[in-house]
């Protein structure tokens, strides 16, 4: 019981400190917004897409999306290797 009280007290203090710091952070208005303004002003005409989020994700930042697709492909490869068919007499290593 003592342990739980101590743990929650530490958690509360940490939470309060974090919120105290976070209250001063500016939110929603980045100090440098040249690139954002460029995307919002010219994105629709340059890519022809009405959805500006897609035009950024797939066009201006297309290389990032290629990396994301590769990550998903690699994850599926990993799952496939984990659940592969065992050969005769083969055992899991950590049994």
């Amino acid at each position: 019981m003592m342990k739980i009280a101590l743990f929650s007290a530490i958690l509360l203090v940490l939470f309060g400190g974090l919120m105290y710091i976070a209250a001063d952070l500016p939110f929603g208005s980045p100090p440098v917004s040249d690139m954002d303004d460029y995307f919002i002003r010219n994105g629709q005409e340059q890519t022809g897409a009405n959805n500006i989020v897609t035009s950024i994700v797939f066009d201006f930042r297309g290389f990032d999306t290629l990396g994301e697709a590769t990550v998903l492909f690699t994850a599926v490869l990993g799952v496939g290797m984990m659940f592969r068919k065992m050969k005769e007499g083969e055992e899991y290593e950590n049994d």
């Binding site: 890519t47 022809g48 897409a49 009405n50 897609t54 035009s55 797939f58 066009d59 297309g62 999306t65 697709a69 998903l72 492909f73």
Partner: peptide, 16 residues
Amino acid sequence: TAGLLPLLNVGVGIEV
């Protein structure tokens, strides 16, 4: 509209 974007969208959709 939007050039390459529909193709890329369909590709990612099929992959996911």
